[in-house]
Amino acid sequence: MTEHAGPADELPVRGAGAEQPVPSPAGDGTQEPWSKPIGRRTVLSVLGLGALGTLFGSHLQSGISSALNAVHANGIASLLPGGGQFTIYTVTSGYPAAPADYTLRVGGLVQRPLSLPLAELQALPATRLTRNFQCVTGWEVADVHWVGVRLVDLAAHAGVNPAATAFQFRSFDGIYTESLTIQQAHQTGAIVAYSMLGAPVTREHGGPVRLYVPSMFGYKSIKWLSAIDLVARPQPGYWEQNGYPIDAWISGHPPVQAA
C-alpha cells in the first residue's frame, strides 16, 4: 500500500474539499479544512513495529512465556503464542501409533543386526540429558529432560563395520527419514530416547522411541523411530530433500567441546 502513496497524496484534496465545502481563510481556526496522510503513517508504524518485533521479539517472548506460564492453568494461555511449549509436528495424517510388537531394528553395515523390544533397549546403559529443544522455525522449549541410549553405544553394541560412515534413520510413520554421520553422533552425544519431559515419550512426541540430537535443530531428532541402518553414504532426510541443511547445527558449526 505504501507504494501507492503517490496517487493517495493527489486525490484527497478533493475528498477534503468535500468535507469542508466552504474553505475558510487561513488562520481562521477551527473551520480550517485539513487532511493528513494518517493511513500511510499507520501502515509505516505497523511495519516498524513488525521489524522491531522480529529483531527483538525473542527477548519479549521469554517474558511473555513466563507471564503465560503463570496463568497457564486457565487453558486459554496454552493456545496463545510464546508459551514456551512444543508445537507438535507431523508430516503424515496425524500422529502414528506404534505397533503392539514394537521393536527397534539396528542393521546395515554391522556385525550383529539387532532387533530390540523396548524393554531390551531400556536395559542398556542409560544417558540422561537436560537440554533445550530448538525448532528451526524459531520456537524453543527450555530444559527438556531426556533419557535414552547413546547412539554410538548402540552402534558399538551391534558392532560397526569399518565401511560405515553414517546412520540412516527411518520412522514407522512410513515417510520421515533422517541421517547423522558417525562423527556427528560423537560430537553431539545423540541419544535414542525412550523418556522425555520426565515420562515415557508420548505418541505425539514420537513414542515409544525417538532420536534426540543435542546442538542440532529439532528436525534431526526423528520421531517414531523404527530402524537405524549404518551406511557408507547417507541419504538426505525428509526436510533436507525439501531444502533444509543436512548439517543442522543450531549455531552454524559443531560445538567446540564434544558433548
Binding site: H4, P7, A8, E10, L11, Q20, G39
Partner: peptide, 8 residues
C-alpha cells in the same frame, strides 16, 4: 485508497 489514507 487515497480516501482511506487521508484523515480529516
Amino acid at each position: 485508497v487515497g480516501r482511506i489514507n487521508r484523515w480529516t
